[in-house]
């Protein structure tokens, strides 16, 4: 009897389920058409040799969202002191600034792949996460100003279908612009694509960079010329100054003393000061630090200790200049002049 009942009821159940599905789909579609804005899809082009970029499903790239992020990037409305992101991140310098004091500003290049941010790596997560930190903590953005603005409520409504702007929405829009700041057209890139050739010095420098002689590539890994990692490279032997303590700040673990995030070397020659405290003012000074100045402490990254148990590279002056010549090929003139990245 039970079986008969089941047989009779099954078609009815199927019809009911199908009807429910149709109704549900219609409801979702209707909801979408009233709440979701009509957006222009943006196809993010990932250069050859770069890994896939992870993009949160709730913040897919669209032209309108990128434009909104770009507008915000250049707008001092984010802060309460007249500063915008672009005040310290100048496009012609590869989105950094050559200040004469303080901690050098890290460049905004190829950020879409990163999940560790700041010199000491204390901010970790998605671009949306770090942008939320920038909005809420770094700038202390007054969201009421954005909601009262003559343009932003409309722009956010168009881009995200929202009526009331919140910090997380600003973070999402900024993340959209950061994801398109892709640098992949330096002379190095052109050589890789057989569109240009290194000079002899640049080629020798490239060989030093990649070989055990320079051992640069263990941390400054192409194509980003960084590894998203944290390392103590032997700058200091005394870590009493909190500015030199690195990731120890975040972890509290003495093993992390002096560990700083590997900065990208793309556009490195545009910078005027190097290292987390700007102690060096030329590429040659930086190379000479690795050449003769590495401090051996219990916290020194093991990768800095060579097979003969030395910690210095001992490059000749010619090799230093050749390595510097190679590093200058990492300047991306297309990127620093791209009109799509400039102030709208």
């Amino acid at each position: 009897m039970k079986n008969t009942e089941t047989k009779i009821k099954r078609p009815l159940v199927v019809v009911a389920v199908l009807t429910l599905c149709v109704l549900l789909v219609s409801a979702v579609s209707c909801n979408k058409s009233t709440e979701e804005p009509s957006l222009t899809p943006y196809s993010l082009v990932i250069p050859d040799g770069f890994p896939k970029m992870k993009i949160p499903t709730d913040n897919e790239p669209y032209v309108e969202r990128i434009a909104l992020g770009r507008k915000l990037y250049y707008d001092a409305i984010l802060s309460n002191n007249g500063m915008s992101c672009s005040s310290c991140h100048l496009q012609n310098l590869g989105f950094t600034i050559n200040s004469s004091s303080g901690m050098p500003v890290l460049p905004h290049i190829n950020m879409g792949w990163k999940d560790k941010f700041m010199w000491d790596g204390r901010e970790q997560g998605t671009l949306e996460d770090v942008m939320l930190f920038e909005v809420e903590q770094f700038f202390g953005t007054d969201i009421a100003k954005l909601n009262a603005h003559s343009q932003y409520p409309t722009l956010f409504s168009q881009a995200y279908g929202i009526d009331n702007i919140k910090s997380k929405d600003v973070a999402k829009a900024l993340a959209q612009f950061f994801r398109v700041l892709i640098s992949s057209d330096s002379k190095f890139d052109k050589v890789q694509r057989n569109e240009a050739q290194f000079t002899n010095d640049e080629l020798q420098g490239f060989m030093i960079f990649n070989s055990e002689k320079g051992s640069c590539t263990h941390c400054h890994v192409p194509p980003f010329f960084a590894d998203n990692g944290l390392h103590n490279i032997g700058l200091d032997s005394d870590f009493s100054d909190p500015a030199n303590q690195g990731y120890f700040h975040e972890s509290g673990d003495s093993a992390h003393l002096g560990q700083m995030r590997t900065p990208t070397l793309r556009n490195v020659s545009l910078r005027a000061r190097y290292m987390h405290d700007g102690r060096f003012s030329s590429l040659e000074d930086v190379i000479n630090q690795y050449n003769t100045g590495v401090q051996r402490t219990p916290y020194l990254d093991p990768i800095m200790i060579k097979s003969n148990n030395t910690v210095n590279l001992n490059l000749t002056p010619l090799e230093v200049s050749q390595l510097a010549a190679f590093l200058r090929t990492l300047t991306d003139s297309t990127f620093i002049k791209n009109p799509n990245f400039s102030k709208p």
């Binding site: 890994p51 999940d115 990649n210 590539t217 192409p222 998203n228 990692g229």
Partner: peptide, 9 residues
């Protein structure tokens, strides 16, 4: 990105 250091030069 986190594993780029696994490339062999």
């Amino acid at each position: 990105y986190n594993d780029l250091g696994m490339y062999w030069p």
